[in-house]
Design a protein around this nucleic acid. Structure first.
Length: 781
DNA sequence: AGCACGCCGACT
DNA sequence: GTCGGCGTGCTC
């Protein structure tokens, strides 16, 4: 009987297509195949194979590709992702099957150089330095040589042209050398050692019989409403009975072999590793990773993209002897495929990566660590909308491997899950080495007013003066890029607004422009009001970091000041260099946006001044309080990581606001208690759920009209609230106008089917309108 | 995602 | 008259 393969294609298609399997080709579920699709050839993955009596008129599979097949657990993750996010299955598959683009192939060839023995024509000082380093005759990378000699790349290039250095193509950098779990033991504090012991005990089977955590599937879901794996399993059994069971059985056998345990009843837990800034969480989970590597299994460490720094990789290398394999959206071409293959064959033991690393085809995954678990960057906001932290928990459940969520300021969902016992909880209550957390005090802006036209309160100016006089570093934190967030005409009152989005245009004085921070629209800052024509009467309202820099430079003309924000002139490369400069103490006063709160350590910093602690508290986002607390806790925690204790001053109009009060008292527990109670009362996540219908169109009017029509078409069941387009801000995202109709539900509502119904019963989509669903939106705009 | 088909505007 | 813009629909 001829066999038919059900092939899932990584396109926005919700179901698999049937193809004939040509005689002589045997296909298994998970195989990656080439298939004809319309006029062209594409790749797809075998999602099922069946025998079909009717000799068919189906097109045949072209052939199997020589890449590792998609293993059962990963296929299960794809099915799960599609079901949970309501995305087409093919789109979910695309996450796991991003093969290198033919065009982007070709890894950048690295050039290795060594001394040729010929003397340079003109031996300058810089050239001699390079030749001194190269004298040993060893082959080095160009940039490595330049760095070692302390000169720029052009000197090395000059010497190559000159013939004093000879250049050869270097073998491509190995993707990763095997990490050594016993390379270096870093000294651990008593608290850290305890945490390591607990963590490793929880991760491995043979727990005391009554000490078993309740399995929980999804971080953000309310109790009992996460679609269970059992349900998903049943669904699979219906659609692909034999193949799936075989795959699962194979996976289980494999699991027994690699762990040598095979305790069927052991459910690997999700563990919240909570530790204040500077408590050494990283060292703790490194030990868990080491334990996992010793057992011959693989480890995945997820990080927010921004935190994937050389600094972190070096720390890893100190502990494990080599840098880990890294994975992020920028890795392309051949290297991408080599990492995928290495991971699938089990040759790569540890991957550190951004959210997309979650879909790598690990052969035997032993642990997933989600560092900075609370970071919003884990949310994918286009294409398939998913939260990498939640999917990590799901993948851990599927692979039956432990998941460690690490954070100094866990998200509310994760805290609640830990408190309810669905996650295990390990707390590192103290900073490493007995260092104190910074003292935080409020500057009440109602009484301690800055002078007219200035934004820094006198007490903060004094604190900065004291700090820099002592030779220490001060950070002034303001989460606002640009010069001023709003510009208005004093003659007619006109406020400059983005023509695309519902936002004010931000003045960027350095660029002499008014810029929309939503869509990037920019116009030259006009001399005269575009509305009434009055000259020289535009007023900047409120401060951005550029304006603070102006003030600081006037106050401290002889101090070195650096402004750090994501739009740093010169791009990410220069920004990295500047962060390095700051870390090395090459600057007295740093003025920065939220970027300084993340990832980098500044050992010379002893004072943090928060210029507007209230920003964000009134944004209307249901997660505003949580966000502000996390951000301010992180940024104030930057103070005093070195020898000296740190302190922080918060400029605020609301010292009694629960968020501010919790920061001031250093009582994070209080914040969590209050916020959790408030969320529960309001039916907000994790007790209820948020979802958004994203209505987008290339034409603004069409997007608005359709958004309104959909909002009218909503017939919310009891307990569901729909926020209409009046409240939904409009934004231009990648060339399309986009609305988010927000839906708030109580815990018992099946959100997925409600949203599906809503779209189905809504107005027939005409024009180029797309409606996407964001199951748990992390923000409004 | 590609690619064709088809419908409207502006140009050698 | 066509060239070409993009909106629409289909691919087992």
């Amino acid at each position: 009987m001829p066999s038919v393969a059900e092939i899932l294609i990584p396109l926005a298609l919700d179901s698999a297509y049937s193809y004939a399997v040509p005689a002589g080709l045997t296909l298994a579920v998970g195989d990656v195949v080439q298939i004809p699709l319309g006029p062209r050839e594409t790749v797809g993955v075998v999602w099922g194979v069946r025998q079909s009596p009717g000799g068919s008129n189906l097109r045949p599979v072209t052939g199997r590709l020589d890449v590792p097949p998609l293993a059962g657990p990963l296929r299960e993750l794809v099915d799960w992702l599609a079901r949970y996010t309501l995305a087409p299955k093919g789109s979910a598959l695309a996450m796991a099957l991003r093969l290198p683009d033919e065009a982007a192939q070709g890894e950048t060839v690295r050039i290795g150089v060594r001394a040729s023995g010929r003397p340079p024509a003109r031996p300058t000082a810089a050239r001699l330095k390079v030749l001194g380093v190269a004298a040993d005759g060893a082959l080095r990378g160009k940039s490595a040589l330049a760095k070692e000699a302390g000169v720029s790349l052009s000197v090395v290039d000059g010497l190559i042209d000159d013939g004093a250095l000879e250049a050869t193509a270097l073998a491509p950098e190995p993707v990763a050398l095997p990490p050594d779990p016993d390379h270096a033991r870093v000294p651990l504090s008593e608290a850290q050692a305890d945490a390591v012991r607990d963590l490793i005990a929880m991760m491995n089977p043979a727990p005391p019989p009554d000490d078993r955590p309740e399995p929980c599937l999804l971080n953000g879901a309310g109790q009992g409403e996460a679609p269970g794996l059992s349900a998903e399993g049943a669904h699979l059994a219906e659609t692909h009975p034999i193949q799936e069971r075989q795959a699962v059985a194979a996976a289980e056998t494999h699991h027994k072999l690699t762990t040598g345990v095979g305790d069927e009843t052991f459910r690997a837990p999700t563990i919240l590793l909570e530790g204040v800034t500077g408590s050494g969480k990283t060292e703790v989970y490194f030990e868990a990773v080491a334990d996992c590597v010793r057992r011959g299994r693989q480890a995945l460490i997820l990080m927010p993209e921004i935190a994937l720094t050389a600094q972190f990789l070096d720390r890893f290398a100190e502990r494990f002897g080599v840098r880990p394999a890294t994975w992020h959206s920028g890795i392309g071409g051949k290297r991408r495929e080599r990492i995928r293959a290495g991971v699938a064959l089990g040759e790569i033991a540890v991957v550190v990566g951004a959210r997309s690393a979650l879909f790598l085809p690990f052969a035997h995954l032993g642990i997933v660590v989600v560092d900075e678990e609370h970071e919003a960057a884990y949310k994918q906001e286009d294409g398939v909308h998913y939260h990498a932290r939640d999917m990590a928990v799901v993948r851990g459940r599927i692979e039956n491997c432990p998941v460690v969520l690490a954070s100094a300021t866990p998200s509310i969902e994760t805290r609640v899950n830990a408190e309810r016992g669905r996650y295990r909880h390990i707390v590192l209550p103290e900073r490493f080495g007995g260092r104190r957390l910074p003292d935080i005090t409020a500057l009440d802006m109602r009484s301690d007013k800055p002078e007219r036209g200035s934004f820094i309160a006198p007490a903060l100016v004094a604190a900065v003066r004291e700090t820099v006089a002592a030779g220490d570093q001060a950070l002034l934190f303001l989460n606002r890029r640009g010069y001023a967030p709003l510009t208005l005409c004093r003659a007619c009152g006109h406020r400059y607004q983005c023509r695309n989005c519902s936002t004010w245009l931000v003045e960027h004085r350095f660029r002499k422009a008014l810029v929309c921070h939503q869509c990037g629209y920019a116009e030259r800052r006009p001399e005269a009001c575009t509305e009434c024509g009055t000259f020289d009467n535009l007023t900047p309202c409120g401060p951005g970091v550029e304006r603070i820099a102006e003030e600081v430079t006037a106050l401290f003309p002889d101090k070195r000041v650096i402004v750090l924000s994501s739009d740093f002139p010169g791009g990410a490369e220069r920004l990295r260099a500047e962060l390095q400069t700051v870390a090395e103490g090459g600057c007295d006063i740093v003025i920065g946006t939220q970027l300084v709160a993340k990832g980098h350590n500044f050992p010379h910093l002893t004072l943090v001044g928060v210029l507007d602690a209230d920003i964000g508290l009134t944004s209307g986002d249901p997660r505003a309080a949580e966000r502000t607390f996390q951000l301010l806790q992180q940024v104030t925690g930057r103070a005093g990581r070195g020898e000296k204790p740190g302190r922080a001053l918060l400029q605020t109009f609301q010292p009694d606001h629960p968020v501010i009060a919790a920061l001031l008292s250093g009582d994070a527990e209080r914040f969590y208690e209050e916020e959790i109670a408030a969320r529960e009362a309001a039916g907000l996540p994790p007790f209820g759920r948020l979802a958004a219908l994203i209505v987008s169109a290339a034409d603004r009017a069409v997007a608005e009209a359709h958004g309104q029509a959909l909002a009218r078409a909503a017939e919310p069941p009891e307990g569901v609230m729909v926020l209409g387009p009046a409240e939904a801000p409009l934004a231009l995202v990648r060339g399309r106008y986009r609305f988010r109709l927000l839906v708030k539900t109580e815990r018992s509502v099946d959100l997925q089917s409600y949203l599906r119904d809503w779209i189905a019963r809504g107005p027939k989509v005409r024009g180029n309108v797309k409606v996407a669903i964001d199951v748990d939106p992390q923000s409004f705009l």
